[in-house]
């Protein structure tokens, strides 16, 4: 049987626009994943500790305030510090095209901008499955 993939959907920073995060959470549940949702205004430390305790395979970060360049890589770095760099980080929100390469170099593996079909997110997750199951 295929492993049940667990995903933390988290909103770092201060913005309260959680429509996208909630949609993703629900759509991923409907796609058969176990989704942990922790609400808005989560600190980097809280996100990382939660991800570790919940032993998730992915962290999906959603942010619309423009603080992604600070906060997304912040999560990646904090995971490394905790020895949990195997947890795959992806992000979404209002993220200018120009910022995406920088985020990827800093360890955010995928960035989904507004209008991305949910299937793209699912495809991304499934593409990582061999990596997760071989752990």
């Amino acid at each position: 049987m295929a492993k049940t993939i667990r995903i933390l959907v988290a909103k770092p920073g201060l913005d309260g626009h959680d429509r996208g995060a909630k949609y993703i959470a629900r759509a991923l549940k409907d796609a058969g994943y176990e989704v942990i949702y922790t609400g808005i205004r989560q600190s980097i430390q809280a996100i990382v500790k939660t991800a570790i305790q919940e032993d998730v395979d992915f962290i999906g970060l959603s942010l619309l305030s423009g603080a992604h360049n600070e906060l997304f890589p912040g999560v990646v770095d904090a995971l490394k510090k905790e020895g949990a760099e195997d947890i795959i980080v992806f992000g979404g929100g209002v993220i200018p095209e120009d910022d995406i390469p920088g985020l990827k170099t800093r360890g955010v593996e995928a960035v989904f901008t507004p209008g991305t079909p949910i299937q793209d997110v699912i495809d991304f997750i499934e593409a990582q499955r061999p990596r997760i199951e071989s752990r």
Partner: peptide, 18 residues
Amino acid sequence: QIGYDSDDSHSIGEVGKV
């Protein structure tokens, strides 16, 4: 909007953004 000064740790990354 959430009542934090710019030097508060909650404000990292958010000052002047929206």
